[in-house]
C-alpha cells in the first residue's frame, strides 16, 4: 500500500516536539556547563576542608560540609524509623483498621504538597520556639525529617508491596510470628525499596534551603554540638550568591560540590529502581 503524504499537522507537531526537547536539553547542558566551568577551578582538598573566611569569599567549606552532614544525620535518624514503621503499618497491617490507614495516607498526601517555606515557618515556631531548641542543627534536622517522611514512606511501601504474597503465606505456614516474619523475611525482601526511599530522602534533604533558613540558621563556624546553629551547603550557596558581593566564585564552587553530590544520587536511584523492577518481572 502506498504511504499517503503526511498532513501538515504531523510535520508541525514533530517540529514542535523535537524543538521542545532540543531547547530543554540545551538549557540543561548550558546550566551544568556553566556551573562546572566556573566552579571546577576553585575545587581542591583545601577548599573542601578549610574553614570559611571573609563571609565565604575566601577560605573553604569545611564547617559547611560538617553542618550539612549533621543535619542530614538528624533528619535520617528520626525519619527512617518513623517512615519504615508507618509503611509497614500501611502495607502489612491495614486489614486491622481501614479508616485509620486511609486517614494516614491522606495526611501524607497533603504533607508531600506542603511548600518548603511553610515547613520552615512550622519548624521555627515548633522546634525553635516551643521546644526551645533555638536556631540549631537539631531543629533543622527535625524540620527536614517531617519533609522527607512522605517520600520515604511511599517508596518503602512500594518495596513491601512488591514482595510476593507467597513469602507471607510461607512464613505463616511455618508458624512464624508476624513480628519475626516481618523482621527476617519481609523487610530484607523489601530492602531495595527502602534503600531507594532512603537515598531519595537524602537527596531531597541535601537540596533543601527554604526550610532551613529559620531553623538551622546561618552560622558558618564549625558546629560543636547538635544544639549549635550550622549553615547547610544550600544556604551557603544562597547567601554567597545573593548577599555577599564578590562571593560568586565560591558560590559556583559550592554549587558544583552540591551538584556533584546529587547527580550520582539521582542517576543511581533510577538505575537501581529499573534493575530491581526488571529482575522482579523476569523472575
Amino acid at each position: 500500500m502506498a504511504e499517503r503524504a503526511q498532513p501538515w499537522g504531523d510535520h508541525v507537531a514533530a517540529v514542535f516536539i523535537w524543538t521542545a526537547a532540543a531547547v530543554v536539553t540545551s538549557v540543561f547542558v548550558w546550566m551544568l556547563a556553566d556551573i562546572v566551568w566556573n566552579g571546577a577551578g576553585q575545587i581542591s582538598w583545601e577548599f573542601l576542608t578549610a574553614p570559611t573566611d571573609d563571609a565565604g569569599r575566601a577560605g573553604g567549606i569545611g564547617p559547611i560540609l560538617v553542618s550539612t552532614a549533621m543535619i542530614l544525620g538528624v533528619c535520617m535518624a528520626v525519619s527512617v524509623p518513623l517512615g519504615v514503621g508507618t509503611a509497614v503499618l500501611l502495607s502489612e497491617f491495614t486489614g486491622t483498621n481501614v479508616t485509620f490507614g486511609r486517614l494516614v495516607r491522606r495526611s501524607l498526601d497533603v504533607l508531600a504538597g506542603v511548600p518548603s517555606i511553610v515547613f520552615g515557618l512550622f519548624g521555627n515556631a515548633f522546634f525553635c520556639h516551643v521546644l526551645g531548641l533555638g536556631f540549631s542543627i537539631l531543629a533543622g534536622g527535625l524540620t527536614l525529617a517531617c519533609m522527607v517522611l512522605p517520600i520515604l514512606i511511599r517508596s518503602t511501601e512500594a518495596g513491601l508491596r512488591a514482595v510476593p504474597n507467597e513469602y507471607r503465606m510461607g512464613a505463616a505456614a511455618l508458624g512464624i510470628s508476624r513480628t519475626s516474619a516481618l523482621w527476617h523475611v519481609l523487610l530484607p525482601a523489601a530492602a531495595p525499596g527502602i534503600v531507594v526511599g532512603l537515598v531519595l530522602g537524602v537527596g531531597r534533604a541535601i537540596a533543601e534551603t527554604a526550610a532551613l533558613l529559620f531553623t538551622s540558621g546561618y552560622v558558618d563556624r564549625m558546629p560543636g554540638s547538635l544544639f549549635d546553629s550550622g549553615r547547610s551547603l544550600s544556604i551557603h550557596i544562597y547567601d554567597l550568591s545573593m548577599n555577599v558581593a564578590g562571593g560568586s566564585a565560591n558560590a559556583y564552587a559550592s554549587a558544583l560540590v552540591l551538584v556533584a553530590l546529587l547527580v550520582p544520587i539521582n542517576a543511581g536511584i533510577s538505575w537501581v529502581a529499573d534493575r530491581w523492577l526488571h529482575r522482579r518481572l523476569v523472575r
Partner: peptide, 24 residues
C-alpha cells in the same frame, strides 16, 4: 538518555536554579 536527563533535572536543588538564574 532524555528520560534520565529529565530525572536529573527534577533532582537539581532550587537554590542551584536560583543561582544560575541570578548569574546568567
Amino acid at each position: 538518555l532524555y528520560g534520565r536527563m529529565i530525572e536529573v533535572l527534577a533532582g537539581i536543588p532550587s537554590v542551584i536554579y536560583g543561582m544560575w538564574g541570578l548569574m546568567v
